[in-house]
Every structure is written in structure tokens, then in C-alpha cells.
Write a protein that binds this DNA or RNA. Sequence first.
DNA 1: GTCTATATGGGGATAGAC
DNA 2: GTCTATCCCCATATAGAC
Lengths: 236, 236
Amino acid sequence: MERAEATKERILDAAERLFAERGFDRSSLRAITSEAGVNLAAVNYHFGTKDELMHAVFARRLAPLNLQRLAMLDACEAKAGGGPPALEEVVSAFVAPIMLAGRAAGLPGLPGLMGRMYSDPNPRVQAIFFDELRETARRFSAALQRALPVVPLAEVYRRMGFSIGAMAHTLAASWIVQKLSAGLCDPSDHEATLRGLIAFITGGLKAPLAAAHAERACRPGRTAPGGRASRRRETP
Amino acid sequence: MERAEATKERILDAAERLFAERGFDRSSLRAITSEAGVNLAAVNYHFGTKDELMHAVFARRLAPLNLQRLAMLDACEAKAGGGPPALEEVVSAFVAPIMLAGRAAGLPGLPGLMGRMYSDPNPRVQAIFFDELRETARRFSAALQRALPVVPLAEVYRRMGFSIGAMAHTLAASWIVQKLSAGLCDPSDHEATLRGLIAFITGGLKAPLAAAHAERACRPGRTAPGGRASRRRETP
DNA sequence: GTCTATATGGGGATAGAC
DNA sequence: GTCTATCCCCATATAGAC
């Protein structure tokens, strides 16, 4: 029957929305099936367990998303010829597809879902999500490495982690800045958020390397040795 | 009795560690009391409910932490006289206290706890945490605004959100970069992580403003109009 | 103050009728 | 394929003995 496919889709949609909103553990199968308008037992019939439902929710979205990211990465690498790709374009290839995913296809839950998964405390969620992320991350870390020849490899990875954090937090917890700014920041303005995020990440990635002082100037009453002076050096 | 105080402390310590590791919802009172070596009913006797236990866990740490942040902020503002404070020092005042909190006092759980709370899906956790954060965030947003006179206020808030995301993700999910880098990045090297984070956030905060194109160059096959050209302008 | 025992509810999963 | 009814486990919270 095609009725069965429709039921599966509705379960996937509801699960996606609830996972994005409340996280995996706080979304009960009862809430999901109720939201989807299907029977409780349908989940176990179609997916087996709640874990496999989560896996299906990821698989449905992450495969095309990562294809889009890699296509954009290919495009900007091709454009650079044999040379290092433009940093801003690499960053855009990583964050733009997911930030704009909800806009086009009527999938408002997807960005929030993805953002949440990066910091979900459930180890099973972490394992499944990391598996889907690994290959894409490998491609992008290689591209970043070429785009940032001055930055040591370990620091490239660290900065990639910072970038992922900025992105994930934006996707999952944008209500914080909205409340802090008393509504001045509108998280639903995806284009402005994306522009700002790309600028921020690009600026962070090519920041001058910090000197490895034994002691830093980060205690009250002391000052930074090279605070205002050691600035103004960028990666070329 | 002072036995009672000892019991309370041990519960708080265990809860802090488990909340940091697994999150609030996944830390049962049974696991907490077992880890603390006290009876299950002791939690309800000393704290009432699990929510109030969480509140107590926060209150014990966040008050001194925020005092330290504000003291460092005061120091760098005083040093700047009436002028705008040095950006890097403002950033350091916000992130250094929490990043190094675990090192000194033998509180390995605290940074992870704080990082997790920024993206906890439980609305009660969000409410309590946001309350503790609000005043400190207000002071820092004002300082950032003065340190970044060229950046519009809404963009300052947005970038503050990106910065919080980079920090929170580093505190809560550093295992991701460790695995992606195949161990090359060592999250337990707090000094190196802190140095990198301050450099990254500072670079992102003073990044050149992105032009508000109607269409961006973030689709496969097209290129960024001002990708490599519109760089090299910094906030003075 | 500390313990045992239990009340009460919600969770995932399944059996079996239709 | 879909439904109802139910099993079983684990959660928080509390009552009452010590």
C-alpha cells in the first residue's frame, strides 16, 4: 500500500520536528505518534526501535545535505585551480546548506535538529550522528588546511571545532541572543544570520596565531602583555 | 550536625559531575546518590526536588564565576581609561574563568556542566540558567559594543551568540575534534584550547562586515562576488 | 538525619484482534 | 497495516521506622 509510505513519512516528519524542539530523550514515542496522527504501535512496526527511527530521521536528511556541501566544496576548489581555495567559500559550503535548509523545502525542523545533535548527551545519538559527519568533515578539514597554510594542523582542527560550535549553537539555541538583545536580533532572518555567521567564522579561522605564553593576562588586575600590540597580522 | 553539610556537598559534587557528563535528564537521582555514596532519599530531604538540586548546583558555582568575570572586565575597562576596552581582554574576561575553572580547584566537572547548560533541551534548565546569565551578559554586551564601535548593535549581539556557541561547544563536545583529528587535538590541554579560543573569537568579532547582497555566492557553480577582495578591513 | 519500602506515573516495546 | 490492551522497567517523590 502507499498508505504505509505516507504513515512512515508522517512519523519521520513529526519525529524530526520534536527531536529538533525537545531533543531525542525528551521526545516520547507517544508524543511523536500523537503529533503525526498515527497509532503508537506504528513506530515499532515501521522502524523497529526508537533508535532506528532516529537513524532514519538522520539518514533522510543528512545524505542530500552532505552531497550539497561537497558539491559546493568541489565547485570552489575547481575554481581555485590547483591553488588553495578561497576561505570564505569553503566556510560557506559548510554552513550555507544547513542554515538555508528549512527555508526552501518547508522543513523548519531540520536546522534545529542538526544543531541539537552536535551536543546531544545521549551516546547513541552521538555515535550515529558522528558516523554521518565523519567523511564530510574529513573533506572539509583538508580544504581548510590548504586554505590556511600558515596555521598548524592541530590548530586547524581546533578552529574547525570552534566553527562547528558557533554554527550548532546558532541552529539550536538562537533564542538566547534573541532574548539577550530584547528582540533586536531576529533568528528567523536566516539570510542575515548566515551572512553574519560566515563573516564571523572566516574571521576566526584566519585570526593571527596566539603566542604561547606560559602565563596569560587573564587574571584580574593584570594586563595582556601583547594585548593591543600583537594584532594586525593576518594569514596571507 | 556537620555530617549533614558533608552529605549536601557530596550530593552537589556528584550531581555536578553527572550533569556535566550526561546532562540533566539523563542523570537519575539514583545514579547521583549512588555516586555520592548517600541514600536516595537524602536528595529530597536536603533539596526538595531534582529541579532545586539543579538550581543549587548552578548557584554554588555561577555566582563566584560571574564575579570573577566581572572583576576582569572591570580591570580591563579601568586600564582603558575612558576609551573603549581592548577587545581581546574583554573576550578573555568572559571565557578564561570558565575554561580554567576545573584546573585549579579540582572541579573537572564544572566546565563541561556549563557548556552543556547552554544547549540543554529542558526548558526548566534553560530558564534557571538564563536567569543566572542575564546580568553578566548585559555587562559584556555593553563592553563589546564599545570595543567594536563600527559594528551595528544587532550584529554585536549576533556575534556574541556565535562566541558563546564556540565556547559552549568547546566545553561540552570537545570529543568531536579529538576524534576528527585522530587524537592530534588534546582537549585536556586547557591552556592551548583557551589561547586558540580567544584568538578565534577575537578574530570573528572584529571580522569585516559582510555586504548585504540579495543573493549570495553560496550555491554550487557560482562564486563569491567579493570573496577575496573585500577582506583586509578591520575595526580600528 | 538517615534508612527501607512504596506510591504513582511515564517510558519503550509487544501480543494479538481486526 | 492498523488498532487496543498490556507487560515490564525505571523515574521522581514520599511515608514512616529507626
